[in-house]
């Protein structure tokens, strides 16, 4: 579903991403781990067409993002580290607007159902977003992703700043999405959650994918040890 083929990005003399080859299948959660500046967010930005690659291709559902960004984004949803939406609008109005931007006009009952799916109650969805916590804002963003019927979801440090309970709820939601057939690519520092919810984990260093592991084969301690090993090679 998500495919990076020799994806490369330079910022001046700095190579932020170095010939990344990566595939995330439908119904799979792939976590990218790495230190700050390792290239995780750059990878997500390339899939979102926020930046242009210097070489290689980013593909979403077979569509090359740089060439057909609008089509690619139809199949894509995004959850940034800090989900920020229009604070003066309600959660419901934000959902409606973002879905309409994607060309979707869903009946009210369906939109309400989306909030039910992500665990945000009706009353809360009618309040202005300026009263929401980070977890609630994330739920609105997830409702948008569900409403779009996105085939792939990109997540950038989604669990940072969440309390353990919210983090667990979030984790459950992700696995639920995965089970519905969505491909999830998540950049994170949270080794524990990464191991808990992902199917595969990639470790990035200096723009390169230096390791790729099946989560099922690892314990959290082993993952931490592997991660630190990769980092110490720098």
């Amino acid at each position: 579903m998500l495919q990076a083929i020799g994806l490369t990005k330079d910022y001046g003399d700095l190579r932020a991403l170095d010939t990344l080859d990566l595939t995330v299948e439908a119904g799979e959660i792939f976590c990218l781990l790495g230190a700050n500046g390792a290239g995780k967010t750059t990878t997500l930005n390339l899939f979102l067409n926020f930046i242009q690659p210097c070489a290689g291709e980013a593909r979403v559902d077979g569509i090359e993002v740089a060439k057909q960004p609008t089509d690619a984004k139809k199949a894509l949803a995004y959850l940034p580290e800090q989900v920020m939406l229009y604070p003066k609008l309600t959660g419901f109005e934000n959902l409606t607007y973002f879905l309409e931007l994607s060309g979707l006009r869903l009946p009210e009952s369906e939109r309400n159902a989306l909030f039910d799916q992500v665990g945000l109650d009706q009353a809360a969805s009618r309040r202005r977003l300026e009263t929401y916590s980070k977890g609630m804002r994330q739920k609105v963003a997830l409702a948008i992703a569900l409403g779009k019927k996105a085939k792939a979801l990109l997540l950038d440090e989604p669990t940072s700043g969440l309390d353990p309970r919210a983090s667990k709820t979030f984790s459950d939601l992700m696995t639920n999405l995965r089970d519905q057939g969505m491909a999830l690519l998540m950049a994170t520092h949270d080794l524990f959650r990464a191991r808990e919810m992902s199917d595969r984990i990639g470790v990035m260093r200096s723009g390169k994918l230096v390791g790729c592991y099946q989560t099922a084969d690892l314990t959290t301690a082993e993952l931490e040890s592997l991660y630190l090993q990769h980092m110490s090679e720098a």
């Binding site: 939406l85 973002f98 963003a141």
Partner: peptide, 18 residues
């Protein structure tokens, strides 16, 4: 600055048109 733009630009709409 508010951080809304990444969410908006992640949607299938041309920024110029928007």
């Amino acid at each position: 600055e508010c951080g809304i733009l990444p969410m908006v630009l992640a949607q299938p709409v041309s920024p110029r048109q928007l």
